[in-house]
Write a protein that binds this DNA or RNA. Structure first.
Lengths: 240, 240
DNA sequence: CTACAGCATCTTGTAGACAATAAGCAATAG
DNA sequence: CTATTGCTTATTGTCTACAAGATGCTGTAG
């Protein structure tokens, strides 16, 4: 059954909360969100075949909206559809991981180059609250939640560029990154060194962004991304 | 009626010629290609409502595959769908144009940074042949064809990075750029100064790429993009 | 004359059914 | 015993039909 408890930007395709009040979301949207959630949570494993009939009864919808949802997920890179063969959860090779990480890095740098110094202070609010959420997770020693909060923070940070297409592309890349993590569950545990240090690094990054020093922020972002890249690449090399 | 005379990478979603021989393309693919073509050629104007029933009889298919094609085009940014209201060809604001051009620039730079020096010489082949096509168009004084060939050249150039996701994102941006041009038809005529000079600039760019001098190629790309940006931005300011 | 309410029509959203193809299995021949 | 061929089954691709909601018009009241 569809359960659309909309999560952060990294998790859902999420319509704006305003429009969702006015327009009841279509089954296509709900189905896409539900399946995306199950893929990213690891309930559907990479490579797993997604039987349409099975999904229809699982979500209590019929096939047309389900198939439309598949198209959406396909364009997001979460599933691949082979004609007459069916749809499968994307299996990521090491090259895919490389592509995802490099593209993410470029998009983040673009956001900083366009967005710093921040013209509209309101654009920083989401990043600030996301950081608070991170620090809360760190204080509670909730590593899994911290990772997700980190994704939301990065997404919010990219938002300072006030660039719709950049946001869209970045969200897509982030989702695939979450798929990487679903592949090697170890990453979820060994990714980060120390929770407080992790949160502190992100606070430092945000402060540099707020200061308006573009080059300093970009430099920090570089080492920031470097760390993630190494962790993920090592991890992928171990398991892949 | 669907007429899938597959064009260059900028125009079609184009399945590989090999697989198209084995697997008959689905109606969804054919419909998406056909509609995309009509949108980019200007047959369907920006803002125009796309009636499902009308499209079904125009393409001689039924609504389910058509609706799936809509999802694809929606994710490509060519149409927008408002729930219970219908689908419309995307209307681009000046900010949209700004976003498209900046994103394109970043993606091209990324391709150069990752792809130069070119490791696999075969990756340069598509760019070389695309350039020849450009020069042919210039010689024949076919301005419209030259512009399209230019798009194919740039797409081929991005291909040197050997980066699937980058290619995909770039193709998407390019399609929206073509949508810009469908908006202001003037651009198609006044965009370029001199046909031969235009082709020569592109040859120069390719030669720098082939030489392996990344910085020089990036510098040339910068002025290259600068020109397009100004032309497009001015043009959009005039008409938008 | 204008504004609001109610209705008719049209369009989208969804469901269920049919047809075509691919995968898996079994039987037979070598 | 193995490989190949034919069939069976299951799953995708597509179509037609029904339901729900939105738009536009018309009629009436102020």
């Amino acid at each position: 059954m569809i359960d659309n408890t909309a999560s952060g930007p990294a998790a859902g395709g999420g319509a704006s909360p305003l429009s969702s009040l006015v327009h009841p979301p279509s089954l296509v949207t709900l189905a896409a969100d539900a399946i995306r959630k199950k893929i990213l949570s690891g309930e559907y494993e990479p490579g797993e075949r997604l039987l349409e009939e099975r999904l229809t009864e699982e979500l209590s919808i019929s096939r047309p909206p389900l198939r439309e949802a598949f198209r959406t997920l396909e364009n997001e890179g979460l599933i691949v559809t082979r004609p007459r063969r069916g749809s499968f959860v994307s299996t990521l090779t090491d090259k895919d991981v490389y592509e995802i990480l490099t593209l993410r890095s470029v998009l983040e740098r673009m956001a900083f180059e366009l967005g710093i110094p921040v013209k509209n202070p309101a654009l920083l609010e989401p990043a600030r609250s996301a950081l608070l959420e991170m620090e809360r997770c760190a204080a509670e020693k909730d590593r899994g939640a911290l990772v997700l909060a980190g994704y939301n923070f990065h997404y919010a940070l990219v938002g300072i560029a006030d660039h719709q297409r950049l946001n869209h592309a970045y969200a897509s890349v982030q989702r695939q990154l979450l798929l990487c993590m679903a592949r090697n569950l170890i990453a979820r545990e060994t990714f980060y060194e120390d929770l407080d240090h992790h949160a502190a690094r992100h606070r430092h990054l945000l402060e540099l962004v707020e200061s308006g020093d573009r080059d300093a922020a970009l430099a920090e972002l570089a080492v920031h991304g470097e760390r993630s890249f190494e962790s993920m690449a090592n991890n992928s090399a171990e398991t892949g």
